[in-house]
């Protein structure tokens, strides 16, 4: 039989309320409080229950997580369940924190449950499965059942459904599905439009996500002493593309020495970007990577230094995750080389 471990707080363990919220992590063999319900519904044996005070987890997070991960090192388990935490804020954050840590360390699925108003939802819904739970412990059995039903699909190797179908908070992971009723996009679009025209409710298939905001960098005080680098997502590379950067859905980037060049010559550099007509950039790569004018600004003394390398990748079909990873890797290098500012030309 598969094995499960359950995390609960001091209150549900029957240790005490607010006065016991500093209770240190403890692991017990067998079932405590809500674990009984879980054990009766899940296709696994709940072998251990971990108990921790909500305040202890909140104020000594690193210590609590480390201690609990240490408990689990010697234990064989297939799935990790925490809560349900209802609308209890500290408990929800604790469940999210420990689920995320356990999932990362042991590579098992971690499942919890919270009410939509619990602050733990927004903090952790992208990392773990958080089921939509009730506001208070009156919903304990219902909430445990939702987690157990889903856990059973995972434990039995069955296909799991979408966030909507299963009842967990959307994790920001989208995937294509074939509709059982085979309703075409044309039909769905026309029906959606008729509803919109008649001021009836409709459901978009692509909710507009909240926009990313990046912290604003401080301005450079003295450009004439600054070291400026050129970076592009326009796919400018030496013609032989030595780093084999993909022309779409890129996962690689390259850096190329321009310290002894005055401009990028056609036939020596080109673009490998497949998302646009390459003719102009192949004929004059400076239209994407403006080396020629940067060298002029360097001669004029407008900038103190032009960084020795330019960095390049391709920005078409490239996933946000890959783009963000490549960006971070390039920034690492730029920081190491004491670059003060970057001109990023995108296409």
């Amino acid at each position: 039989m598969k094995k499960a471990v359950h995390y609960i707080n001091q209150f549900f363990a029957g240790i005490g309320g607010e006065e016991m919220a500093d209770y240190k992590p403890e692991i017990r063999e067998g079932l405590v409080g809500p674990s009984l319900a879980l054990n009766s519904m899940i296709d696994a044996e709940v072998t251990h229950t971990i108990i921790c005070g909500d305040n202890f987890m909140g104020t000594h997070t690193d210590e609590a997580v480390e201690e609990i991960l240490k408990f689990l090192e010697g234990i064989d388990f297939d799935i990790f369940i925490a809560g349900p935490a209802f609308n209890a804020g500290r408990y929800g954050v604790a469940c999210g924190t420990i689920c995320k840590a356990v999932k990362e360390k042991f590579n098992v699925e971690a499942i919890t449950s919270m009410n939509e108003e619990n602050p733990g939802v927004d903090m952790f819904k992208k990392d773990i499965y958080i089921f939509k739970g009730g506001k208070s412990a009156a919903k304990l059995r219902d909430d445990v059942k939702k987690m157990a039903d889903f856990a059973n699909k995972i434990l039995n190797g069955k296909k799991t459904g979408s966030a909507d179908e299963e009842g967990f908070f959307e994790r920001g992971i989208r995937s294509q599905v074939w509709l059982d009723d085979k309703k075409t996009a044309a039909r769905r679009g026309v029906e959606m439009l008729i509803k919109k025209l008649n001021n009836e409710e409709f459901v978009t298939e692509l909710p507009i996500p909240k926009q990313d905001r990046v912290d604003i960098a401080h301005p450079i005080k003295d450009l004439s002493k600054a070291n400026i680098a050129l970076v592009t997502t326009g796919g400018i590379v030496p013609v032989e593309n030595p780093d084999r950067i993909q022309s779409a859905s890129a996962t690689r980037w390259g850096k190329y020495d321009i310290s002894n060049l005055e401009r990028l010559e056609s036939g020596v550099y080109k673009t490998i970007h497949a998302g646009f007509d390459p003719a102009a950039a192949d004929a004059d790569p400076n239209v994407i990577l403006p080396l020629d004018v940067m060298k002029e600004y360097l001669r004029e003394g407008k900038i103190g230094k032009l960084h020795k390398y330019f960095y390049s990748t391709v920005g078409t079909g490239t996933t946000q995750k890959e783009a963000s990873r490549m960006g971070k890797e390039i920034v690492e290098e730029l920081k190491k080389d004491k670059v003060d500012g970057v001109i990023l030309v995108s296409t």
Binding site: F276, V293, Y297
Partner: peptide, 30 residues
């Protein structure tokens, strides 16, 4: 396809446009 120089215009004009816009970008950094 050509962020900093329209191939249908003379080389000098492309250079001038590129010089101007990169200059604006450098000033933006400050």
């Amino acid at each position: 396809p050509y962020p900093l120089g329209d191939p249908l215009t003379p080389k000098e004009q492309q250079y001038k446009l590129r010089y101007h816009r990169v200059g604006v970008a450098l000033d933006a950094l400050t």
